[in-house]
Design a protein around this nucleic acid. Structure first.
Length: 731
DNA sequence: TTGGAATGTCATCGT
DNA sequence: TTACGATGACATTCC
C-alpha cells in the first residue's frame, strides 16, 4: 500500500508539474475529492476524509519544507499536513502577536483614530494586522502575509476595516486562511508551533500554568545578549502584571514561540514609561478622554468612520496608543452588533461568533481574573453589554484629568521658565485651599529680612555701645516729662528714619568710646540706633544716606548742633537730658544689673531720676525685645513660606509619580485583558469546540494557576473541588 | 485726611 | 522676690 501511494503520488505530482509548465492549472483536489475517492483514500489514508490536500497551494508546498515529491518522507509530510489541517479545522489558530497588538491603538478624540506610525515597520505590521478585518476576504491575504507585506496590512482604509472582532473572530478566519498563497516560512513556522501548542492545550492545564511555562522557558538557552534582553522584558512584564507570565514555549519541544507579541508590548511600555515625563497635557487629556469619555456605539462608530475617512495620524506614535478602556471598549471591539452599517456584510459573516464575542466581553466583566484589575462596575456589566450604559472609568475621570492638569501646570511653572509671578499665580489658582500666598515679592518678610537682621545686629551690638555721660536733672513723672518735652518742642521730634538707616549701615559706636571729650555732648543714645548715636557723637559728620539727609538738605535750614541732637534723640533721651541723668541711656539699658546697680550707687540721684532711669532701662530692654520678637516672627514666616514651597514641590512630584503608577496599572489592565482573551479563545473542549464565554470563565487560583470554570462556581467551590476544575480545564 | 507700615510702649507671663 | 526675655495689644509716628 505504501508503495502504491508513493507511486500515485509521484505520478500525480509529476503530471501536475508537467501541466503547470504548459500553463494549465490542475486542481488535484478535485480529482481526489470527487472523481477519484479511492485514490484519495489510498494516498491520504483513512483520515483523509477530514482534510484536503491542496497541491496547488503554495503554502502546502512550502509546508513540505523542501521535501522532494519523490521522497519517501512524503507520507510523513502528508500525515503532518493532515494533522495540521485538523488543527486548522478546529479553529484553533493561535492569535498572532500582531493581532493582540491591534488593541494598542487609541483614539485621540472621538473622531480621530490614531494608529501607530507607519515609520516603524514592526509596529506598523502589528497594528496593521491587528486592525485588519480578518473576515474580509479581500483583506485577509494581506494579514496572512504577516511580516512580508506590512503596508498591505493597512486595510484600515478599506471600507470594511474595523477595530472590532479581531481576536475572537480569528476562528472564522481559519477557513479563509486555506486560500492564502502568500504565507512565508515564518508564518508556517508559527502555524506549526501553534499547532503543537494546540496539542499542548489538549494535553493538560500545565499549558496555562505560567509557572510551568516559565520553568520550561528557563530551559531554553538563547544567546547571552538575547537572553539578557528577553529576561529583562519578561521580568518587567511579570513584575508589572504579576501573572508569572512567560513567553510562549512549546511544552513538548521546548521551542520558543516567537515573542514579538511580548516584545512589542514591552517596547510600548518602555516608550510609555519614557513618555511620562514628556507627555503634554493635550496628549494626556486626549488619551484619557478616549478611554473614559465615550459610549460604546460612539466608539465603534467613530472609529469606523475615521478609519475610512481620516488618514492615519502619523504624528501619533505608538507609545501614545492605548486601548480604549478595558472596561468600556472591549464591548465595542468584540460586539459586532455595535458596528455601524458599513460593516454589515462582515457582521453577517461574524454571526456565528458574534454571540461568543459578546459573551467573551461579558466574560471579561464577570471573571475573577479580570476582576483583579478591573473596577467593580466592569464586573457587573454581565452579558448584556450592548444595553449596558458605559460608565466612565473612575480612575481616568477622577484622577488623571485633574492630576494631569495640576502636574502640567506646576511643571510649566516650575520647570519651563515661568516667571515667579506666573508660577505663583498658577499655584494660587491650583491650590485655592492654601491660605498662604507664596508670592515672595509681595511677602512682607522678604524686603525686611535684611533689615531685621541688621536690626538684630544693631540690637545685639548695642550692648557694646559706648555710653556717653550726659547730665540730667530731676525727673519723676511722665507729666513732668511732658512738660519738659513741651519745652523742648522747638528741638524737633523723633526721627525714626534714622533707625532704619542705621540698620542698613550700622557702624560700631565703640570707635568713639575713646573720645571722652564727646561725653559732654548731648548724644543720641538710642540703644538700637547706633548710627544715630554715632551721629550724635559726631554731629559734624554728615549723614549721607537716606531720605532724611536729602530732606535736611532740602530744608537747608541751619540748625544748632544741640537742636539736631534733640531732634534725633528719643523721648527717653530727651527726658534723661531734661532730668540731668549723669550717664547715657545706652549704659542705663545695656549694663548688667550688677554694674547698673553699682552705677546708680556711685551717683547720688533723686527718686525721680532713679525712677526715670529704671523706666528707661525697662523700656529700652523691652524695645529690643520687641524688635527681636518681630524679627523672629518674620523669620518664622519666611521659614513657613519655604516649607510650603517645598511641600508644593513634593506634592507635584508625588502627583507625577502617582500618574505614572496609574498609567502602569492601566497598561497592566490592557495586557491582562489581552492575555485573558488570548487564552480563552484557545481553549477547546474535548470535542474541539470553544468554550462559550457566557458559560465559562477563567479563574485565577491561589496557587498561581489559571483554570477555566463554569460560571456561577464560587471561589469556595473552587477551593473545595480543585481536581474537578483541573479536569474541566484539561478538557 | 486717611490708611498702612514701622516702631515704641505697656501688660503679662514664664523662666 | 527680682530681673529679664517674650509677646500680644495698643499707641505713636511717619509717609
Amino acid at each position: 500500500m505504501l508503495y502504491l501511494k508513493k507511486y500515485f503520488t509521484e505520478g500525480l505530482i509529476q503530471f501536475t508539474i508537467l501541466l503547470s509548465l504548459f500553463g494549465v492549472r490542475v486542481d488535484v483536489d478535485t480529482y481526489l475529492n470527487n472523481q477519484l475517492p479511492p485514490l484519495r483514500e489510498i494516498i491520504l489514508g483513512p483520515s483523509s476524509a477530514y482534510t484536503q490536500t491542496q497541491f496547488h497551494n503554495l503554502r502546502n508546498t512550502l509546508d513540505g519544507y523542501g521535501i522532494h515529491p519523490k521522497s519517501v518522507d512524503l507520507d510523513h509530510f502528508f500525515t503532518t499536513r493532515r494533522l495540521l489541517n485538523q488543527v486548522r479545522q478546529l479553529d484553533r489558530l493561535f492569535v498572532p502577536s500582531t493581532e493582540l497588538n491591534t488593541w494598542l491603538v487609541h483614539r485621540d478624540s472621538d473622531t480621530v483614530v490614531s494608529a501607530s506610525s507607519q515609520s516603524s515597520p514592526s509596529i506598523t505590521l502589528d497594528n496593521g494586522a491587528g486592525l485588519e478585518d480578518v473576515n474580509n476576504p479581500d483583506a485577509t491575504p494581506a494579514m496572512r502575509g504577516g511580516s512580508g507585506a506590512p503596508e498591505s496590512t493597512y486595510s484600515l482604509n478599506t471600507a470594511d476595516s474595523s477595530l472590532g472582532a479581531v481576536a475572537p473572530e480569528c476562528n472564522q478566519e481559519q477557513g479563509n486562511r486555506d486560500g492564502n498563497d502568500d504565507l512565508t516560512k515564518e508564518d508556517i513556522d508559527l502555524i506549526d508551533i501553534l499547532w503543537r501548542q494546540d496539542i499542548d492545550l489538549g494535553a493538560g492545564r500545565e499549558v496555562f500554568n505560567y509557572s510551568n511555562r516559565q520553568k520550561e522557558n528557563e530551559e531554553e538557552k538563547p544567546s547571552p545578549q538575547e537572553n539578557k534582553d528577553r529576561n529583562e522584558e519578561q521580568e518587567s512584564w511579570r513584575n508589572g502584571v504579576n501573572l508569572q507570565g512567560a513567553p510562549p514555549v512549546d511544552g513538548e519541544t521546548g521551542e520558543s514561540i516567537p515573542e514579538q507579541q511580548w516584545q512589542d508590548i514591552m517596547a510600548i511600555m518602555e516608550l510609555q514609561a519614557m513618555e511620562v515625563n514628556n507627555t503634554s497635557l493635550h496628549t494626556n487629556s486626549s488619551s484619557v478622554s478616549a478611554i473614559s469619555g465615550t459610549t460604546e456605539s460612539n466608539t465603534a462608530g467613530n472609529f469606523e468612520l475615521s478609519t475610512r475617512s481620516t488618514p492615519i495620524n502619523q504624528d501619533v506614535s505608538l507609545h501614545q496608543a492605548s486601548l480604549p478602556s478595558c472596561s468600556q471598549d472591549f464591548p465595542q471591539i468584540f460586539n459586532p452588533q455595535l458596528d455601524s452599517a458599513s460593516i454589515a456584510p462582515r457582521t453577517v459573516t461574524l454571526r456565528p461568533s458574534s454571540s461568543n464575542s459578546t459573551n467573551i466581553n461579558s466574560t471579561f466583566g464577570a471573571t475573577n481574573l479580570t476582576g483583579i484589575f478591573l473596577p467593580p462596575h466592569v464586573n457587573s456589566s454581565s452579558n448584556n453589554v450592548t444595553s449596558t450604559p458605559v460608565l466612565p472609568d473612575p480612575f481616568s475621570t477622577l484622577l488623571e484629568e485633574s492630576m494631569l492638569d495640576e502636574i502640567s501646570l506646576l511643571d510649566l511653572a516650575m520647570e519651563e521658565g515661568f516667571s515667579q509671578a506666573q508660577a505663583s499665580q498658577l499655584e494660587d489658582e491650583l491650590d485655592s485651599d492654601s491660605g498662604l500666598s507664596l508670592d515672595s515679592s509681595h511677602s512682607p518678610a522678604s524686603p525686611s529680612s535684611s533689615e531685621t537682621s541688621c536690626s538684630s545686629a544693631a540690637s545685639s551690638s548695642s550692648t557694646s555701645a559706648t555710653f556717653s555721660e550726659e547730665g540730667a536733672v530731676g525727673y519723676s513723672t511722665d507729666s513732668e516729662v511732658a512738660t519738659v518735652e513741651t519745652e523742648e518742642g522747638a528741638v524737633g521730634g523723633y526721627q525714626p528714619e534714622y533707625s532704619k538707616l542705621c540698620r542698613m549701615s550700622y557702624q560700631d559706636p565703640s570707635q568713639f568710646h575713646t573720645l571722652p571729650q564727646l561725653d559732654s555732648i548731648s548724644h543720641n543714645h538710642t540703644y538700637n540706633l547706633p548710627l544715630s548715636s554715632a551721629f550724635s557723637e559726631h554731629p559734624e559728620l554728615p549723614i549721607s544716606v537716606g531720605k532724611k539727609t536729602v530732606r535736611d538738605k532740602q530744608n537747608s535750614k541751619p540748625q544748632p548742633p544741640q537742636d539736631l541732637l534733640d531732634k534725633h534723640s528719643s523721648r527717653d533721651e530727651r527726658r534723661a537730658r531734661a532730668m540731668k541723668i549723669p550717664f547715657s541711656n545706652d549704659k542705663i539699658i545695656n549694663l548688667p544689673v550688677e554694674e547698673f546697680n553699682e552705677l546708680l550707687a556711685k551717683h547720688h540721684l533723686s527718686e525721680a531720676q532713679l525712677a526715670l532711669i529704671r523706666d528707661i532701662r525697662r523700656r529700652g530692654k523691652n524695645k529690643m525685645a520687641a524688635q527681636n520678637c518681630r524679627k523672629r516672627k518674620l523669620d518664622t514666616i519666611i521659614k513657613l513660606e519655604q516649607g510650603v514651597q517645598d511641600l508644593r514641590r513634593d506634592k507635584a512630584r508625588l502627583l507625577k509619580e502617582k500618574m505614572e503608577f496609574i498609567r502602569s496599572i492601566r497598561q497592566m489592565k490592557q495586557k491582562m485583558q489581552s492575555l485573558y482573551q488570548e487564552v480563552f479563545t484557545q481553549l477547546r473542549d474535548e470535542e474541539g469546540r470553544p468554550y462559550p464565554p457566557s458559560e465559562y470563565s477563567l479563574q485565577y487560583s491561589a496557587d498561581g494557576s489559571v483554570l477555566i470554570m463554569p460560571r456561577g462556581v464560587t471561589t469556595a467551590e473552587q477551593n473545595r473541588k480543585p481536581e474537578k476544575k483541573q479536569k474541566d480545564k484539561k478538557k
